[in-house]
Amino acid sequence: MVRAVELAARGAGTVLPNPVVGCVLLDAHGHTVGEGWHERAGGPHAEVNALRAAGDTARGATAVVTLEPCNHTGRTGPCSEALLAAGVTRVVVAVRDPWPTAAGGIERLRAAGVDVVLVTPALAAPAEDVNRVWLVATRLGRPFVTFKAGVTADGRVAAADGTSRWITSAESRADVHLLRSRVDTMMVGVGTVLADDPWLTVRDSDGMPIGPQPLRVVLDSVGRTPPGARVLDDAAETLVATAADFGGGLRVDPAAVLSELYRRGRRHVLLEGGPTLATAMLDDDLVDEMLCYTAPVVFGAGRMMLDGGRTATLVEARRAELREVRRCGPDVMLRYAFR
């Protein structure tokens, strides 16, 4: 299962709006005879790729998969039927499929006499984590939201004079562009547009746009985005969400924007907005994970990573779980999960 999770991770950034899935086929002696992962949306699923790699050795094998084999026909056929046709006799599953349309693979396999095993929660946890974007989006009916911030060691995103470029290192900025290449949507508030005039694009080391670009979303309640803003250039598609279209009141409703993005097939939002928007979305329980790129710099004054908010006591504080710690040059990246 550990290997299947590693394989699943290879599909990050290429399979959206579909899940990342990994599959390992073992013969009767426990030897690997085939491996596969879901490589791109619309392409063969992990089980099919593993079966192709195994060929005739798949007969009588055990399939170890990170997500319940699908049981429906979409752009590809049902993986449950592919496993049956190949003669697989045992299937080990980490996570049940929460999408009703595709669910039922376990029941179909068991009805055909296949031994299906669901792993323990401890073994399932890495499979949940690697596929967290699709699982949370499917369960909640809105995109998974990652809040990213580059901060000083004392939690500040700008100095007292407003300067913020660059707090973090070149290595951290390169890592962020890799992250941008793996999401399908980027979101900021109009305050960030007015203060920083960002492009919100995936760029190479020379600063040039590279590869498929995520949708850019600006939450702009009263339409203050300047016509000449970089975020409106032709490097990528942009949605300016106003209160008139999303909320009907004086302020744009982030939940309504997320619902519309999900309807449009968007599954992963990278929130790069300033402290005000991030705090508002945290207050509304709309942030699923937080990435903090922490630089070995101390300001002692300046704007904090979060600003305001409804939390008044320690009891009301939102608790997160530290899921990942990684060096980025002189900086440290911390990934916290709220679910």
Results as ranks from 00 to 15, higher is better:
Ala159Cys: 02
Arg165Gln: 10
Ala124Arg: 08
Glu171Val: 15
Phe147Asp: 02
Asp129Tyr: 07
Ser172Glu: 05
Ala170Val: 15
Arg156Pro: 04
Arg142Pro: 09
Asp175Met: 08
Met186Trp: 03
Ser172Gly: 13
Thr201Arg: 02
Val157Thr: 08
Trp134Thr: 08
Ala124Met: 04
Gly150Ala: 14
Val202Ser: 13
Val188Ser: 06
Thr152Ala: 12
Asp197Phe: 08
Leu194Asn: 02
Ala195Pro: 04
Asp129His: 12
Gly191His: 07
Leu135Gln: 12
Thr168Leu: 06
Met187Ile: 01
Ser169Tyr: 03
His177Asp: 14
Pro126Thr: 05
Ala149Glu: 09
Ala195Tyr: 06
Leu200Tyr: 05
Trp199Pro: 00
Arg173Val: 03
Arg173Ile: 02
Gly162His: 14
Gly189Thr: 00
Asp204Lys: 08
Asn131Ser: 14
Trp199Asn: 06
Asp161Phe: 08
Trp134Cys: 12
Leu200Gln: 03
Leu179Thr: 14
Val188Lys: 10
Val157Trp: 01
Gly191Lys: 09
Leu194Gly: 03
Met187Cys: 12
Thr201Lys: 00
Trp134Ser: 06
Arg142Tyr: 00
Arg182Gly: 09
Ala195Ser: 09
Glu128Trp: 14
Ala127Tyr: 05
Leu178His: 14
Thr168Trp: 07
Thr201Ala: 13
Arg142Trp: 01
Glu171Leu: 13
Val176Gln: 10
Arg132Cys: 08
Ala170Asp: 13
Leu200Lys: 06
Leu194Glu: 09
Asp196Pro: 03
Glu171Gln: 15
His177Pro: 05
Ser164Ala: 14
Arg139Asp: 02
Thr163Pro: 00
Val157Pro: 02
Trp199Phe: 10
Ser164Cys: 11
Arg203Gln: 11
Thr185Phe: 09
Ala174Ile: 05
Val133Cys: 09
Arg165Glu: 13
Asp175Glu: 12
Phe147Ala: 11
Met186Arg: 11
Asp197Val: 04
Ser205Val: 03
Met186Lys: 08
Met187Leu: 15
Val130Asn: 02
Arg142Asn: 08
Arg182Val: 00
Pro143Tyr: 00
Arg139Asn: 04
Asp204Pro: 05
Leu194Ser: 00
Pro198Ile: 02
Val145Pro: 12
Met186Pro: 01
Ser181Met: 11
Arg180Cys: 13
Phe147Pro: 00
Thr201Glu: 02
Thr168Glu: 05
Arg203Ser: 12
Arg173His: 04
Val176Ile: 15
Ser169Leu: 12
Leu135Trp: 00
Glu128Gln: 09
Val151Ser: 10
Gly141Phe: 07
Ser205Ala: 15
Arg165Pro: 00
Leu200Asn: 08
Phe144Arg: 11
Leu194Val: 09
Thr152Leu: 11
Ala137Asn: 02
Arg156Asp: 06
Ser164Arg: 13
Ala125His: 12
Val183Asn: 01
